[in-house]
Computed example of a mutant assay.
Amino acid sequence: MTDTFRALLTGAAMFTAGAAGAAECIAPANPGGGWDFTCRQIGKIMYDIGAVEQPVQVTNMAGAGGGLAFQTVVNERNEDEDLMVAASVATVTRLAQNAYGGSTSDQVRFVGAIGADPGVIVVAADSPFQSLTDMLDAIEADPSSVSFAGGSAAGGFDHLKVLQLAQAHGVEDLRSIKYIGVDGGADAITQTIGGFTDGMTGDMSEIVGFIESGEVRALAVLSDERIEGFDIPTAIEQGVDMTGVNWRGLYVPGGISDERFAEWADKLRAVAESEEWQQAMVNNGLAPFTSVGDEFQSFVDESIESQAELSREIGIIQ
């Protein structure tokens, strides 16, 4: 109840809340993170291109690494045809780990993803770490000496990125690496800028403003190649063979009609094909990735299986 009440107080609407029947997008984190970005960008463009008649209301509902929003949709808004929820690899990871209190992916319907958000490792501007290998060497020498903050819960996708990087660098004691899960990428960066953690693990769209302000430095981007417009080296070119790319998409309540689901898929596809979204991807360092409708649901099901296997491999679940 406390988290829900707080979400109502801090939930930010993109525009003035619309009348009854206006579309709503729940961002399962505080303002400033990747899920918040998804709702605000997709919702704005839907309205700008005429896919929806009224401005999309954005509600921030942080809690349990996306679990509060997921269970709210399943238990209270299962047939709400005007509701969409921001989703990503982090959502799939938590479902794969049974971290949403027994909730399962088939209780909602995954509409699609229309952008790939490369993972990043970020430090404060005055950090002694000058490269990813500097940081990983310190972790190899003493796994508990370097701490990270991320916008997903412990065991979530942001946490897994750190563990996979350490594993690829030859670190064996993965469980001693310190990680703090907070409610969104902006909160994670604040922890790092404030000196509470040594690094932030998140996604490209979450750090653009902080890079431009000079508050942080990005040690690595976890994509195959550097992101155009951003002078950030990849982990691969620093000798660490690891990539971590986070798709950005939506799910809707499981109880809505097939017809309404198809309408949501069409609206999301229209956003993906718009000039506005192409520019948003450039501005925020996103890579092209479009999968919408039934094919995306199959992709999510396969991803949950692979994430569960990875989580067992590194000891997150049994």
Rank of each mutant, 00 (worst) to 15 (best):
R6Y: 14
E237Y: 05
T4Y: 14
G151H: 05
I45L: 01
E24K: 10
E215D: 15
Y179R: 09
F296W: 08
A188P: 06
T104S: 13
N283M: 03
I42Q: 06
V282G: 01
E215I: 00
A13M: 02
V216D: 02
A235M: 08
L219W: 05
Q130Y: 04
P233C: 08
P118H: 04
G43N: 06
S306G: 06
G170N: 06
A124I: 01
A280P: 05
G115W: 04
N284E: 10
I232M: 03
A280W: 00
S88L: 06
D187G: 00
S291Q: 02
E24I: 13
G155H: 08
S223T: 08
H159I: 07
A116E: 13
G65C: 06
N30F: 13
I177N: 02
K267T: 12
N246L: 02
A69C: 11
E313S: 14
L219K: 13
I121Y: 01
G119N: 07
T190W: 00
E237V: 11
I189K: 08
E215T: 10
R40I: 11
G151I: 03
V74Q: 09
G151Q: 05
A138H: 04
S152Q: 07
S105L: 15
H159A: 02
F148N: 08
E302T: 14
R312C: 02
Q107Y: 02
I121R: 06
S257F: 10
A265T: 14
A220Y: 05
V122A: 12
R109H: 12
G155W: 08
A51F: 01
A154C: 01
D48Q: 15
E276M: 11
L222C: 01
W264C: 10
D203E: 14
D294L: 10
G194A: 15
A51K: 01
S152M: 04
L95T: 06
F261Y: 15
T201C: 14
A64Y: 12
S147Q: 07
I207S: 13
G194V: 03
I256S: 09
Y251A: 00
D117H: 04
P253H: 04
Q278C: 00
G209F: 08
C39V: 09
S131R: 09
M242F: 14
I304W: 03
V171L: 03
T290P: 02
V221A: 07
S131I: 10
A17E: 14
G156Q: 03
T91M: 01
M84C: 11
S105D: 09
Q297F: 02
T38K: 00
I49G: 08
T290A: 12
D173W: 06
V146R: 09
T91D: 11
E215A: 15
T16V: 12
E275I: 00
S103V: 01
I180R: 14
G66I: 05
V120L: 11
L83N: 08
G315E: 06
A62Y: 14
P143M: 07
T290K: 09
T234Q: 08
S145H: 00
C39N: 05
M46R: 13
S223D: 05
A23D: 13
S176K: 07
V182S: 07
T2H: 12
D294Q: 12
E24D: 08
V252C: 01
T133P: 00
F289S: 02
V240I: 15
R175G: 13
Q130I: 01
V108H: 01
R226V: 12
A7D: 13
F289V: 01
